[in-house]
Design a protein around this nucleic acid. Structure first.
Lengths: 121, 121
DNA sequence: ATTTATGCAAACTATTTGCATTGCC
DNA sequence: GGCAATGCAAATAGTTTGCATAAAT
């Protein structure tokens, strides 16, 4: 994995955006500083870096894959109405132990959805 | 919402498939009994029925939207390796109360991911 | 008779891939 | 210099939409 300008800009964009960015958002941000960049490079680098553990792929939500620069274990919530993504820093280990013993699966990520405080009127 | 043959066949396919079917799987199943059906009809009906509460949209996982005929509150797990989807009939209400008080959001669905028992060697 | 749902084809969105070229190491 | 990464364009996958026709109420 070579240390290219593009890779640095992309990683930096995910950090600066700080909103669980999509490839499109990262591209829009990076293209300002480096107009020649191609979307393919953004897609390729985002998945590589997620694979390598430099970024966290938080899954495909409403059609787009989102990335998080915060790699330490935490979970996410997405509002079904406004699509806002919120970090959930709550400890799930007790329930997950139950899930493990009942369903026999090791959970590493949790994506919750529902209605956020702004949207429930 | 009219009671067409197509709609009946589609609802029935989701029940019979019983594997958190995708639009494609439903289409493949229905086209056997009704060769003239179009994919657009499958997509339209699945989303309408999910909207109406006759089916549950369990979200887009690895690029495809999955539907569940089991509408009663339960959660899901998907294996990151084999993409198998498992029902999780564990009560999350205690943690979700915490999530509500800390993050201020009402969770109605939980999609977990990790490694299933078949895949962890 | 009215009006919604269907089938088809084309459009669209997010993402991936092939390939010649560029530029890190 | 060699090989991995880039940019571009074309391809792909999943899904949606416009419109004329068919079928349900």
């Amino acid at each position: 994995m070579r240390n290219t300008i593009q890779r640095r800009l992309i990683l930096n964009a995910v950090k600066e955006l700080n909103v669980h960015a999509t490839a499109e958002q990262v591209y829009q941000h990076v293209v300002e500083q480096h107009p020649a960049i191609s979307k393919a490079t953004v897609y390729r680098n985002l998945s590589q870096m997620a694979e390598a553990g430099e970024l966290l792929n938080i899954g495909n939500l409403y059609g787009q894959t989102h990335y998080d620069h915060n790699c330490h274990a935490h979970h996410h919530f997405i509002c079904e109405r406004c699509k806002r993504i919120v970090d959930v820093e709550v400890d799930f280990s007790a329930v997950l132990a139950q899930v493990q013993s009942i369903a026999g699966v090791d959970v590493s990520n949790i994506a919750m959805s529902g209605i956020c405080s702004h949207c429930k009127t």
